[in-house]
């Protein structure tokens, strides 16, 4: 049984309003990936993670707990949990992923920073001011909370003198590029995904990879932001053979992830069907969204191997220390 929708949404939006993220985690955790990169603070162009990849292991822990609670008598006390959460950051106390789980997803922003550096892009990072975009709350219809949060993010951009933002994931991209201009007056920030930036630079790969991969398009990249050719152009430089699944590009099939916060079982059913489609095309699948990655990976078990596109691009870019067998 799912937990009562109104209480779950209430906790998520209370967190965004009071603590700046639907799932507040300490800034030192969210910025740990950048520790050894020595990225300059701020600047006209910044790499903006929106904390999405870093949040995934925490979200996974919470969803597992939510599923257990939903099947227990404690589900009746979700309203109490919401009231307590206003005073105590419950998520931070409950969701404690292992260092290994965190490292798995922290690697993606590190990869992207290295790829941009290799392509000669100059950029900074906002560290503790790299805030969550509000994507989930926006999807859930919590418009007033999201509007206030968008003002907070835009104010941070102004204070740091940011004119251009390079994003890592589709959900942050569409929030900053398409939604924020409708919520913030005089919002004048150029927003591009790193996939678009890298594709435009067309940097040749240093190493040719071998193997066949199937590409899973993100619904948000493909249908909201028209990012379809860029991942294909980038993978074409790596030497990999890229095959298309049933339902590709603008007709891609959802991973089910957007339903996970409220209805994990429905999310799993959609993911299972997509894994079948992808597995019929190849054993190795490339994703470009943290939600897709975790949801499909969880559904597939060992049947299909899912990896973020940045992993392949870094390997082809000559970072031999990170190479692994495709």
């Amino acid at each position: 049984m799912p937990l009562p929708t109104r209480d779950v949404i209430g906790i998520l939006t209370d967190n965004l309003r009071l603590r700046g993220s639907v799932l507040p985690i300490p800034a030192r955790r969210a910025t740990r990936w950048a520790r050894e990169l020595d990225l300059p603070r701020g600047g006209e162009t910044v790499l903006y993670t929106g904390m999405m990849y870093q949040l995934i292991p925490y979200i996974e822990r919470l969803v597992r707990l939510e599923q257990r609670l939903g099947d227990s008598p404690l589900a009746r006390f979700s309203g109490v949990a919401r009231r307590v959460n206003r005073f105590v950051n419950g998520a931070a106390l409950i969701a404690r992923p292992s260092a290994g789980e965190r490292a798995e997803y922290d690697r993606v922003p590190t990869n992207v920073a290295k790829l941009l550096q290799q392509a000669g892009v100059e950029f900074g990072y906002l560290y503790e001011d790299d805030l969550y975009s509000g994507a989930l709350a926006h999807d859930l219809g919590a418009d007033a909370v999201v509007a206030t949060h968008a003002q907070r993010v835009a104010r941070s951009f102004r204070e740091h003198g940011v004119k251009e933002v390079i994003t890592i994931d589709p959900h942050t991209t569409t929030m900053l590029r398409t939604v924020y201009p409708t919520l913030v007056d005089d919002y004048d920030v150029r927003v591009r995904s790193y996939l678009e930036v890298l594709a435009e630079r067309a940097v040749p790969a240093q190493t040719q990879l071998s193997g066949t991969v199937v590409l899973h398009d993100s619904c948000v990249y493909a249908r909201y932001e028209n990012v379809v050719s860029e991942p294909r152009d980038l993978l074409a430089t790596t030497g990999l053979t890229v095959v298309e699944p049933t339902h590709a590009g603008k007709l891609t099939w959802c991973c089910g992830g957007p339903a996970e916060a409220l209805y994990p079982d429905k999310a799993a059913a959609v993911a299972s069907r997509r894994v079948e489609q992808l597995g019929a095309a190849a054993h190795d699948c490339v994703t470009m969204c943290p939600i897709c990655l975790v949801n499909l990976r969880k559904s597939a078990g060992e049947t299909v191997r899912f990896r973020d596109i940045s992993e392949y691009l870094v390997e082809a870019g000559g970072d031999h220390a990170k190479r692994s067998q495709i």
Binding site: P2, T5, I9, D139, L140, C219, R223, Y224, K250, L251, W253, C254, G256, P258, A259, L262, Y263, K266, V270
Partner: peptide, 16 residues
């Protein structure tokens, strides 16, 4: 139909 409304994936397959 609140559960149905909140189940929608917002994936835009329909809209496409």
């Amino acid at each position: 139909e609140s559960e149905t409304v909140f189940s929608c994936l917002l994936c835009r397959a329909c809209e496409e």
